[in-house]
């Protein structure tokens, strides 16, 4: 992929920022036992990476968070504004950028032989492991919790995230067939 962004790249970036915002409109599902609301929105970084690739995927998340910062209420629960970035879960939000980047990179590397399971695994590594590796320590520091407690508290969201990673795998494969966007990385210098 070239280092410069074409008009088309910018359209894709804007579309996925808007699409991730639209995912907030899906009503959240609350898992009865753990009581945490599962929103469709955190599927946004997984989908952006899986469909657009590392660079464009990460940039679409940068754009989304910039739109949130200027006050648009586009996060799940109608949240928006700079106040969002002051909360203890800010790591799970800023983590969308590296999460989308890693999901995208793994998809680019494994693009030729991509399967639903492979895409699901990529989405899981980037969208769950990378995301939590950033979100959990930030939560622990911000809310002055022991790391273990922060991890335990966050773990309630993992079942929902696994479902989202699985959906991402199915969607990414279907989109690859219907309308592929990621170009295979050539072994040429950038």
């Amino acid at each position: 992929m070239s280092t410069s962004l074409s008009t088309r790249d910018i359209v894709y970036i804007a579309l996925f920022a808007a699409l991730t915002a639209a995912l907030a409109l899906f009503p959240p599902i609350t898992i009865p036992l753990v009581g945490v609301p599962i929103t469709a929105q955190s599927m946004g970084p997984m989908l952006a990476g899986a469909i657009l690739g590392a660079k464009r995927g990460a940039l679409s998340m940068v754009l989304l968070l910039a739109l949130v910062a200027i006050g648009l209420p586009i996060l799940a629960g109608g949240r928006g504004g700079l106040g969002v970035f002051a909360g203890p879960t800010v790591g799970f939000l800023l983590g969308w950028i590296p999460a989308a980047w890693v999901v995208g990179l793994l998809h680019e590397l494994g693009w030729r032989k991509l399967t639903v399971i492979g895409s699901f695994t990529h989405a899981m590594i980037g969208g769950i492991i990378v995301l939590y590796a950033i979100g959990v320590p930030v939560l622990a520091v911000h809310a002055s919790l022991p790391l273990k407690t922060a991890l335990f508290g966050s773990a309630a969201f993992i079942p929902g995230d696994l479902i989202k990673a699985a959906l991402t795998g199915v969607i990414a494969m279907a989109v690859k067939r219907a309308h592929p966007i990621i170009e295979v990385r050539q072994s040429q210098p950038a």
Partner: peptide
């Protein structure tokens, strides 16, 4: 079904991206 909702939406949106980029250019 989130799949029934997300998939057609994404494919439709991606298809329009090409035309939007062409129109801007």
């Amino acid at each position: 079904s989130p799949l029934a909702l997300a998939l057609p939406l994404i494919v439709r949106v991606l298809k329009s991206a090409e035309d939007i980029a062409d129109a801007i250019e």
